[in-house]
Every structure is written in C-alpha cells, then in structure tokens.
C-alpha cells in the first residue's frame, strides 16, 4: 500500500529525514517510536503533503501512485489520513459542515454522488458512538475551544467518518486520559480490516497494548534504525533509546 524508499526531506535547508525506508501493506499496523525531534511528525507531514517541507530525495508510492506528485487534497481523497499531533482550531467552520464537505470531495474523487443527508446523519450517529464523541462537540466550530483530548478524539471521529485506507496517527494517545485511550483504541480496532492500514506514532508502549502492532520501528535522526515486533516496544520502554543511538549511523557520516 505504502512504500517509502530512501526518503530525504528538509525544512529551511535543514535535512530532517535522511534516507528513510518503510513498507506498509494492507491489513498491517505499524508503530513508529523514537526520541523527540527525531523526525516522526516530519515524516507524517511529508506524507500528507505539507508544503514547507522540501523532499530532496527518495520515492514514496501509495497504491502504486507517486504520492509526492499529488496535492495534499488528492492524497486525502486517495485514502491517506493524518491524525495531527496538534490539530488546529478553526473558529467559524462548523464541524459538521466541514466533515460533509470533506466527505463529498472524497466521494467526488471516487466518482460517487454526494452523500444523502439522511445517510450522513446516520453515519454521524454511528461513528460518534464508536469513538464516544459528544454530539455537542460535533455541532461546534472545528476544534474551537476543545480540550487537548477532545481534539484528539475529533481526529479519530473524522477518521471513522472518512474511512481512509492508510491512517497515520501522530501521538494521538498523548494527552488522552486512560478512558479516552481505551475508547479511541477500541474505535481504531473496530475500524481495522484487511483492506486498510495504520501507522501509529507514539512514545508510549501503553497504546500498543490496546492496538497491537504488527511491526515496531525506531526512528532516530531521520532514519529507521531498528525494526521489530511488538516486543521491541517493551524493550524500548525498559532501556530507552541510548543503546540504539550508539549503533545508529551518525548524521555526519552521510
């Protein structure tokens, strides 16, 4: 589904991703861990198409298409979803209007007619329930005045509504209380299928107890320096990252 080869990206002439490889197949859940500032959010932003990142090398294909050639909106329409680490507040744009617009743009891209009002409402209800997203929040302006946890939950609510193929969750677990974490995880687990895939960016092993990953990768200094199964997360929890830093190729060697 997603194939990243030797991806290099910089911001303001500072190289942040330094030759990153990752393969994600349908049905898989990948976790990416790594110390602060190692480039996890940068990877997510580059995949979503944020324009202040310059891709300087490598290839990314998504369902066989060159992802880097697509506009951010087309990436989303093709089924890529990024749950932001810091979702923005947009006062004056109603959550519902926004979601409906987004869904219809995705549908139009896939040659589907606009969603019917009744079906939309039915879906809203169903997905709100799935992630226990308060309908009072759904009726408000997009993220305006939402608490950190509410914003995260809104990201997952949108994910549930848009039903993307590949979802990247950037620290969705940070800032969630234990109940919210359980609810969000349960939601994600219900959405998992053989046809979609997830990349979970996280600092905490705890999330991976709820959403069990097929692979765990360590991103350090712009590269994946180690990959393993869920046991790797436990090992990281215990030992930290230092033992990996020593074995990692230093930036200056490039």
């Amino acid at each position: 589904m997603l194939s990243i080869k030797n991806l290099k990206a910089s911001v303001d002439d500072k190289e942040i991703l330094k030759g990153l490889d990752l393969e994600v197949k349908a049905g898989e859940v990948h976790a990416i861990m790594g110390p602060n500032g190692s480039g996890k959010s940068t990877l997510a932003s580059v995949l979503a198409g944020k324009d202040n990142y310059e891709v300087t090398g490598g290839q990314v294909t998504f369902d066989g298409k060159d992802l880097m050639d697509m506009s951010p909106e087309d990436r989303a329409r093709a089924g890529l979803f990024l749950a932001f680490q810091y979702p923005v507040e947009i006062p004056g744009v109603s959550n519902i209007n926004f979601l409906k617009t987004a869904m219809n743009e995705v549908r139009a891209y896939n040659n589907l007619p606009p969603i019917e009002a009744k079906e939309f409402l039915r879906m809203m209800k169903e997905k709100q329930k799935l992630v226990e997203f308060d309908s009072a929040l759904a009726n408000r302006s997009l993220n305006e005045g939402f608490s950190g946890g509410e914003k995260k939950r809104n990201e997952i609510f949108q994910l549930a509504m848009l039903e993307p193929k590949l979802s990247i969750l950037d620290e969705t677990d940070s800032g969630l209380d234990i109940d919210a974490l359980r609810i969000v995880s349960r939601g994600v687990n219900k959405l998992r299928s053989g046809k979609n895939a997830f990349i979970l960016i996280t600092h905490y092993q705890r999330l991976l107890e709820y959403i069990v990953p097929d692979y765990v990768h360590v991103l350090y200094n712009g590269q994946i320096v180690k990959s393993g199964t869920k046991e790797l997360a436990l090992e990281l929890e215990e030992k930290g990252y230092d033992w990996l830093k020593e074995s990692a190729p230093a930036a200056s060697f490039h």
Binding site: K50, S71, P72, E73, R75, A102, L162
Partner: peptide, 13 residues
C-alpha cells in the same frame, strides 16, 4: 495551518 488542515481532509484549494 488551517488551510493545510482542510486540504488534508480532501477539501480542494
């Protein structure tokens, strides 16, 4: 950031 957020959900420019 707001513009990018909307686009990242499939909404055109």
């Amino acid at each position: 950031d707001a513009l990018f957020y909307l686009k990242s959900r499939g909404i055109g420019e």
